[in-house]
Nucleic acid binder design. Structure first.
Lengths: 106, 106
DNA sequence: AATTTGCGCAACCAAAAAGTTGCATGTATA
DNA sequence: TATACATGCAACTTTTTGGTTGCGCAAATT
C-alpha cells in the first residue's frame, strides 16, 4: 500500500477534510456532516491521513477528535520549492530583459 | 475522468518526470531512458500531465519535446498557502510565548 | 522506394483505491 | 443493567489507475 502525502492529497474529499480540520479538531461524524458521504467513508479517509501522519487523533470520552498535523504539510511545500526557485529565476530574467529594454530606450 | 493537478502529482513516476523536464524539454524516449519503464508508460503519464496543462509539447521533426508548464505548479503553491499562513501564525505565537518568558525572567 | 525510428492511440489486464455493508467495542445515558 | 451513540475494522464490490501489447502514421535514413 503506497501511502505518501502526495497520494493523500490527491483525493478532493481528503483535501476538503484537511482544510476543514486545519483550524479545529473534529469528530468523524461532524466531518461527515460537511460532505456528501457516509461516516464510514470519512473514517477511511481519516485512516489514510493518519497513516501518513497528516492527522492526529485525540480521544475524548467516546468521541475521537481529529486535527491536522500541519507540520507535515511542509513536505509538500518543500517539494514545490525546487519549482519556486525556477519560476522566480525566470521572473528575474524577465525583469532583466525589461530593464535592458528600458535602458536601450533612453 | 478526474484530471487535476493534485491527482497528477500523486504518482511518483510523474513527479520524477516533472522534475526531469522542469529545466530542459525532453522526448518521451529520452525520459523513459531515465526510468525503469517503457516509452508507452511514459507516454501515458505525459498524456495525463498534458491533460491537466502541466506539460506542453513542441514537435520537432518526428520528435516531440515535452517541457514543464511551470506556471501551473503555482496552483499547488496557492493551495498550500492557506496552511502556510497557519503555520506561520503558530510560529509567531510561539515567538510571543518565548518573548514573554524572557521578559518574566528579567 | 524500402526500412527504420519516434510517436500516439486503443484494447486489454492486473493491482490498487474508494465506497458500502455489517459487525464488534467501548462509552455515555436512562 | 439495558439501550443508544460514536467509532474502528474487516469483508466485499465497483471504479480507477498504471502498465503492456499491438497497431498505425509520419518523419528520417538507407
Amino acid at each position: 500500500m503506497r501511502r505518501d502525502i502526495f497520494q493523500a492529497i490527491a483525493d478532493p474529499t481528503r483535501r476538503a477534510i484537511i482544510t476543514l480540520i486545519a483550524l479545529h479538531a473534529m469528530t468523524p461524524n461532524a466531518i461527515a456532516d460537511n460532505f456528501n458521504t457516509t461516516r464510514q467513508a470519512v473514517s477511511k479517509h481519516l485512516r489514510i491521513l493518519t497513516e501518513c501522519e497528516l492527522v492526529k487523533q485525540e480521544q475524548q470520552g467516546r468521541e475521537i477528535y481529529y486535527s491536522l498535523q500541519i507540520e507535515k504539510m511542509k513536505e509538500i511545500d518543500k517539494w514545490i520549492d525546487q519549482f519556486r526557485k525556477i519560476w522566480e529565476t525566470r521572473f528575474n530574467q524577465l525583469d532583466n530583459v525589461l530593464a535592458t529594454l528600458k535602458k536601450q530606450k533612453k
